[in-house]
Amino acid sequence: MSRSLRQRALDYFHHNPTVRAWSLVAPGGLWLLVFFLVPVFMMFTYSFMPRGMYGGVESGFTLEHYLRFFDSLYLTILMRTTVDATVCTVACLLLGYPVAYAITRAGRFKGLLLFLVILPFWTSFLVRTFAMIFLLRDTGLINTALQSIGLIDEPIVMLYTPFAVMLGLVYGYLPFMILPIYASLEKLDLSLLEAAEVLGARPAARFFRVTLPLSLPGVVAGALLVFIPSLGSFLTSDLLGGAKEILIGNLVQNQFTAARNWPFGSAASFVLMALVLVSVLIYLRVRERSGDAAGAP
């Protein structure tokens, strides 16, 4: 490109903020459009079409897949999945918050500790879940160790129980809780805590009245980052739960494989997605309200 042409292009760029903004958004936006929105739209379309006998869909329009979902069988699964995801989120919060808090106070070990938190991401989720199997099973590491030091005679049944599923979920998603909470605690202005202390706040009051409310954005972000994927999880319940229970994620997976009912799988995904969307919207609305109440004179 000749210098003058290059200069002209730069000038054009410089004097057109709209062009400039769009050129920044375009690559990511295009990516999202092609690889996220288009598939989602396709799934949405599928969910209203009759099922193809051997997979895929046939042309036509039907609501049967959504109607089918509102059977008590599937609603129960949805309910159980929601409860599981909620328990997992709460457990991650209770375990993750103190860890995040400790890391912000860890001084020169901060980097090391953060590194340790993200270390599990270096291997695939699958591999880590398998490692969990070798830990938990009757002849696994934990039971063998407990037996060899004589604490127990019979192995404790851990693998293929609801406990194992929860353990796997919490283990898998804990970093997603720790990191955003850490980020919001890290930003916390320590002089606010000193101010509270001078004003008479003891440690518990300082935590609940200052630290916790100010780290709430991190808590909410972490909760969403844990809740949403655990709603859709299916590997953990298969591998650590012995596939004895079915969650929404397993249901959807089955529809796209063995059951060859793509439209029903799509419909189930959309019900799940709607649920997530509604809960996020409720959260935003609540936050907006409290913001209004605090703001306007």
């Binding site: 002089s191 101010a195 706040a201 605090a294």
Partner: peptide, 21 residues
């Protein structure tokens, strides 16, 4: 501890609680 001293203090950056009115 500071909360036992019953003093009052004004901070350099004010240290107002941003989440409270």
């Amino acid at each position: 501890r500071p909360y036992e001293r019953r003093l009052a203090m004004v901070f350099q950056n004010y240290a107002l609680f941003p989440h409270l009115t």
